[in-house]
Design a protein around this nucleic acid. Structure first.
Lengths: 348, 348
DNA sequence: TTGAAAGCGATACCAC
DNA sequence: GTGGTATCGCTTTCAA
């Protein structure tokens, strides 16, 4: 099947290319009619011919002439990370419904690669970008500003007036996690966190501290900082739990999925059990949380909302209707989820 | 910063646009020199000016003129499924290194959506597609053939002479899983599978049967078919385990991650323990496998290889160098993996 | 080695 | 409502 162009359709339908262009770009009005300055009968004929011939618009040509690509780029650190792949999934969906195509890429947490990727997608005339910045990517992101490409930041923040932002309130996330445990009657609540202070983690720490102080439990505040490297991390968590067991610690906040995994591993190794020896509040989602009985309470980020809001915000920025460029979303505590069903979010 | 075109570079460098085009498209030879019919000094000057002006090729224009897009589409059923997101990650990586851009999309296992997506990406002049077909997508895929767009099938098969294929040998996967258990000294090995026969699952079943027969254990062959729906499935697995416990079953093959989850759930509910009451061989990857001690043996598909082979095959097809269009990959049994380290594949 | 000029297929502008 | 045509930025002959 050889390519059929707008000219072929025009010739076959006995009209000008202009008319065909009008018809092909017309959107459906509410009444089911095309809203374009074309005679409905003509329009119908053109549509019929286009379909019969199998016409498909050449986006390269359209983009070249119109300067619009209806394409956005999404760059995360690792699309195989379930946090990001979930977000990407929803971004793709939302964008698809708006007639926007999405190009995805992973930066590998590498500012140089991010910089290259930005160059690449700029070459594709993307109209906007949604980026989860990595450490040291300030220079790369400056290009977005230089080229005047609307950009929305997700997951991590970065200075810059021009960026849109869709971020989760991590102070609140740490706060509700802690408050839940306090409500359960626990007082000796501790936390395990990483030494290297990513803002999302330090924010969760602050939320923990805030909740403890509000409850008059400031004397029990105890944040155990572990290495990022897996082997060392596992060992440190194990030691922490061993001591905590003697100390009479009642509960732990494990603010990332990986830290939670170390926690469960330590439990296993030390022969401890979850409701008996400690209580946990974990973060993100893992099969392990669902397998325990009762289900391990965990704080999840509103991934779909992050995705939808970022696409919408980016779209507004592209169309020049900039309202509020900084969107803050709340994390949710899941206490009654069960395998194969919707998680139930608790509010209190 | 306004757009700088090839003309601006040409004017600034005092050469023709042709030369600039040559230089910008030249690839580096082994000797570090550009292999194009341009005076090295001129080339250097052009390069310098292009960089200084911040020139970036307009891909829409290049694509329009040359008829090439250097873009492929990848359509899987759900990019947030870790199996696919891992593959996509590697596809993206491989393609990126070849200078190819990738557009990802999810079909939702919906043939109509798949059909729309194919239309959309055809409009983007993609040069090839990598597709995980869903049930009933024959008609949609026929368009790829009609439009003469090279297409590689992954994960699931579908009839069609023109398609390339990168599939995993699932009979072998079921076979090695079973054989491992037999080597461990077990005889009463059973399997849990879904009623609805996707080929990947029925193949694994056949592998199980084959291994059992070869070992003279045909009398113990027992495949429990469960519903796909989660609540019913969980219940059926629980019942199966309860009976099996009485019957003296020694081991189970759980041929998908989800079925494995149901298995662990049943274990929990019934108060059974893994090395004591049963042995498992599971499939795919899950945090749960790693948490158990010893680590639950599991069969994994070579995701990176699937990704790399499919990109390479597609590239060959696009370039017209079609060699072997049907690639079969072996799954691997992981018996000694531990959290945070490379899984160790056992061969025997 | 270099350059002039012809399009690629659509949209935008203007005239009717 | 409709149609003619210049043009987007680049690659690609072809000729010098």
């Amino acid at each position: 099947m050889k390519k059929v162009t707008i000219r072929d359709v025009a010739k076959e339908a006995g009209v000008s290319v202009t008319l065909v262009s009008f018809v092909m770009n017309a959107k459906m009005g509410k009444d089911g009619r095309l809203d374009c300055p074309v005679n409905p009968n003509t329009a119908r004929r053109v549509l019929e011919v286009a379909k019969r011939l199998g016409y498909r618009r050449n986006n390269a040509a359209a983009s070249l002439r119109s300067g619009r690509s209806h394409t956005i780029a999404v760059i995360v650190s690792d699309i195989s990370n379930s946090f990001f792949s979930d977000i990407c999934r929803h971004i793709e969906n939302t964008a698809y419904n708006m007639g926007t195509t999405v190009i995805f890429a992973s930066s590998d947490e590498n500012p140089d690669k991010l910089s290259n990727l930005i160059d690449t997608v700029i070459g594709y005339n993307v109209e906007g970008m949604i980026i989860a910045p990595c450490l040291g990517s300030e220079a790369a992101l400056k290009k977005a500003v230089d080229y005047n490409i609307p950009t929305v930041l997700i997951d991590r923040d970065m200075p810059g007036e021009d960026f849109g932002r869709v971020l989760v309130d991590n102070v609140d996330a740490g706060f509700i996690a802690t408050k839940y445990l306090i409500h359960q009657g626990f007082g000796k609540i501790e936390m395990v966190s990483y030494k290297s202070g990513v803002t999302s983690l330090t924010d969760r720490e602050r939320g923990y501290e805030k909740a403890m102080e509000e409850a008059g439990l400031q004397d029990y505040i105890n944040i155990h900082k572990i290495e990022y490297e897996a082997v060392a991390a596992k060992k440190m968590v194990r030691e922490t739990f061993k001591d905590a067991s003697k100390r009479g610690t009642e509960a732990f906040i494990l603010p990332t999925k990986k830290i939670a995994l170390y926690g469960f591993n330590a439990l296993n190794v030390l022969g401890l059990n979850l409701p008996k020896d400690f209580s946990f509040v974990c973060f993100d989602e893992s099969d392990i949380y669902d397998l325990n009985k009762p289900v391990v309470p965990h704080v999840i980020q509103p991934l779909q909302e992050i995705a939808e809001k970022s696409v919408e915000l980016l779209n507004d920025m592209v169309e020049g209707e900039t309202k509020n460029k900084n969107i803050s979303l709340k994390a949710k505590l899941v206490v009654g989820g069960r395998l194969g069903s919707e998680p139930i979010a608790a509010t209190f």
